[in-house]
């Protein structure tokens, strides 16, 4: 069967099954299980209303459990076991973790990830704040916002191709077609192969993610800046505050909670960053990161134990944000 037809069929079956499930489950509850008539009508209505939320929730909860809940536990289990040739798994304790810790590539990935975790959220938030503050003050600000926001729609792979052209370098005798090297050569320098200089190439990769994420930071922070009560700014002006003081001492402290949200959201993106490194360097020239290290282990080395162990490391790094998010969500609900 042609995949397109299969796709249409899946939509029809999927949507039909969903609607059918919800409709008939409700009908069954109201007409068959607890009919709202006869001697127990009142009790039946109450009972039906106790069960109904779970009918509404069941498909979503099932999918959530199967695709996100169960894998967390299963990955933890796999990280403590080893595949035995011929099928089956042996419990090996922390051997996978020990093996991972003995690999220099893992520590390289950890080191690089730490730089990613500091540089990308900081730069994206800073640029986002700058763009938000500046574009809110001018007439064509919305057009500028659209353009800075645009990379959000571009895939990481697309962004990698875009930036590979920017970083492109050729021998000095040839005409440079990468804009950065063209500028360097025009200023009298030698062309640079940006992506193969160990250590610094990490930062050239980070720029790609900063370029993508700044728009996100800008949109959220711009909304927060607009929400600042005008009186506070007016009072500061009357007291003779300079524009710099107004921005850093009046506005920024008031939007601090939003800055934290933006920072943590980008941190999550950074921890999962895979496509950019995979497409641009594939972890060569000391640019390995955790997510790509894990992919290497899983699908090249075919080592599910160490792969799962590195996935658990990513999970561990995410956990503080997870707890913090749940706590602030609960606080908000009260």
């Amino acid at each position: 069967m042609h995949p397109a037809i299969q796709g249409i069929l899946t939509i029809v079956i999927g949507v039909g099954a969903c609607v059918g499930y919800f409709y008939f489950a409700n009908q069954f509850l109201d007409k068959v299980l607890f009919p709202a008539k006869g001697p127990n009508a009142g009790r039946n209505i109450n009972r039906a209303n106790q069960i109904r939320p779970w009918i509404f929730l069941f498909p979503a909860l099932f999918v959530l459990f199967l695709y996100l809940g169960y894998p967390v536990v299963e990955t933890l289990r796999l990280s403590l076991t080893e595949r035995v040739p011929g099928g089956g798994y042996d419990f090996v304790g922390f051997e996978n973790y020990a093996q991972m810790a003995s690999e220099p590539k893992f520590w390289e990935a950890m080191r690089n990830n730490m730089f990613w975790l500091i540089v990308v959220p900081a730069m994206s938030t800073a640029f986002g704040l700058l763009a938000a503050q500046l574009t809110d003050r001018i007439k064509w600000g919305n057009v500028a916002k659209s353009i800075i926001f645009m990379p959000m729609a571009i895939s990481f792979v697309g962004a990698s191709v875009i930036w590979k052209l920017v970083y492109d370098g050729r021998p000095i005798e040839q005409e440079q077609i990468g804009i950065l090297n063209a500028i360097i050569v025009a200023l009298g320098g030698d062309p640079v192969t940006f992506l193969t200089i160990p250590f610094w190439n990490n930062f050239f990769l980070m720029i790609v993610l900063v370029w993508v994420q700044t728009g996100f930071a800008m949109v959220i922070l711009s909304a927060a800046l607009r929400g600042i009560p005008e009186e506070t700014v007016e009072a500061a002006i009357i007291d003779g505050a300079s524009p710099w003081q107004i921005f850093f001492k009046i506005k920024v402290p008031q939007i601090m909670p939003t800055v934290v949200v933006v920072w943590t959201t980008i941190t999550l993106v950074v921890l999962k960053v895979f496509d950019i490194v995979f497409a641009m360097t594939n972890g060569q020239w000391e640019t390995q990161v955790l997510a790509n290290y894990m992919f290497d282990k899983l699908f090249r080395a075919n080592d599910w134990g160490v792969g799962s162990a590195s996935a658990m490391v990513i999970m561990l790094l995410v956990t503080p944000i997870l707890i913090w998010n749940i706590r602030s969500a609960r606080k908000e609900m009260r």
Partner: peptide, 21 residues
């Protein structure tokens, strides 16, 4: 309330964890 909290938690679970299982 517990379910809502669980969903907020699952929002950030990296999908890397889900690949092998």
């Amino acid at each position: 309330a517990l379910l809502i909290a669980a969903i907020v938690g699952l929002l950030v679970v990296p999908l890397q964890l889900a690949l092998i299982p």
